[in-house]
């Protein structure tokens, strides 16, 4: 007998005792009873499936929102916008100080700025805000 045939003979005997011990009629009875007691759990399966889909959506949408916020925050980090946001809270004197600081900065960066900045004291709050906004570009 070849090795392969011997293996096949052994395989045919494998599990034979377990099969002989099995009470087939009792097993059939138990299976039928379990099928009767536990109807198809399709609803549970559907619920679980929807829960999984919902969880996946939360992860995807949450991730997208987080990424979007990061992008918006990186754009919002421009200093000029921060200045503009605060303008309405400043008093006339504070606006003049800000403009004077701007003026100082511009004068330091470029000698081409005219001396007319001294006229700032004659402007009211609204005009000063308009000047500041125009400087922001």
């Amino acid at each position: 007998m070849s090795d392969e045939a011997r293996l096949e003979n052994l395989a045919k005997r494998l599990g034979a005792r377990a099969a002989e011990r099995l009470d087939v009629a009792a097993t059939a009875q138990k299976v039928v009873e379990r099928l009767r007691e536990q109807p198809v759990r399709r609803i549970v399966w559907v619920q679980q499936t929807w829960l999984r889909i919902a969880a996946a959506l939360v992860v995807v949408v949450g991730g997208a929102v987080a990424v979007r916020q990061n992008v918006v925050r990186s754009h919002a980090a421009h200093p000029a916008h921060l200045v503009a946001d605060d303008l309405s809270d400043l008093s006339t004197d504070e606006l003049r100080d800000v403009l004077a600081t701007f003026d100082q900065l511009i004068r330091t960066d470029s000698g081409a700025v005219p001396e007319s900045s001294t006229d700032l004291h004659e402007l009211d709050a609204q005009q000063l805000r308009a000047v500041l906004r125009s400087l922001e570009g």
Partner: peptide, 13 residues
């Protein structure tokens, strides 16, 4: 179940 239980038991064992 009656037809296939024993071959299934052999396979599982």
């Amino acid at each position: 179940v009656g037809r296939h239980a024993r071959p299934l038991a052999r396979f599982l064992a």
